[in-house]
């Protein structure tokens, strides 16, 4: 599952593999880091407090979304997100490989998350150890958009790191 934004001109934006590696890495790393920082430094009601953690965490989340926006209309994103009848067999082959890789990573992360939630709920209200678990709407909202972001970006990240260099133009 992924999305691709086709611009008004209908042409895809050219992005270098190095730029794609950087942008996809930022998109995948900045979002969870930003959420973690926001969680570690929660908003307080004290008006005098300067919310460095809150602001910095929010900026990281915005940076992650901005990084995604830089390649949402790229040729890499077209391979994983465009309609199948607009791709040729080489591009379909790349898409299948990217989706297979993404499925493995996404399924692994989901299983780890479920195991963690299982342990956290087991320890809930125990005096041994208290593990964080999502409780508020904001927590579930952040998890939902994080999962969506990973679903959209993981296949593109795979392509950015593994796709052979484009043949030189004639």
């Amino acid at each position: 599952m992924s999305i691709f934004y086709r611009g008004r001109s209908g042409k895809t934006q050219s992005r270098s593999p190095a730029m794609m590696k950087l942008a996809t890495s930022i998109a995948l790393l900045a979002y969870p880091l930003g959420c973690f920082i926001q969680l570690a430094f929660p908003d307080t009601t004290e008006a005098s407090d300067i919310q460095f953690g809150e602001v910095f965490g929010f900026l990281l989340v915005v940076t992650s979304l901005f990084a995604f926006a830089t390649f949402a209309a790229s040729s890499f994103q077209r391979i994983v997100g465009d309609e199948t009848d607009k791709l040729d067999e080489f591009e379909m082959d790349l898409r299948r490989k990217a989706q297979a890789f993404s499925y493995q990573v996404f399924a692994s992360l989901t299983l780890i998350g479920i195991i963690y939630l299982g342990v956290a709920s087991d320890l809930f209200d125990s005096d041994r150890l208290t593990l964080w678990h999502p409780q508020t709407y904001e927590h579930w909202n952040a998890l939902f958009w994080g999962a969506a972001l990973y679903a959209f970006v993981l296949p593109t990240a795979y392509l950015a790191w593994t796709m052979p260099a484009a043949p030189e133009d004639e």
């Binding site: 067999e89 080489f90 591009e91 052979p164």
Partner: peptide, 19 residues
């Protein structure tokens, strides 16, 4: 033959085996 022009390049270079 109905493919992307870059696909021909990948094919020529041996990065991709055609169907």
């Amino acid at each position: 033959v109905g493919v992307n022009y870059q696909t021909i390049g990948y094919l020529e270079r041996g990065d991709f085996n055609p169907s």
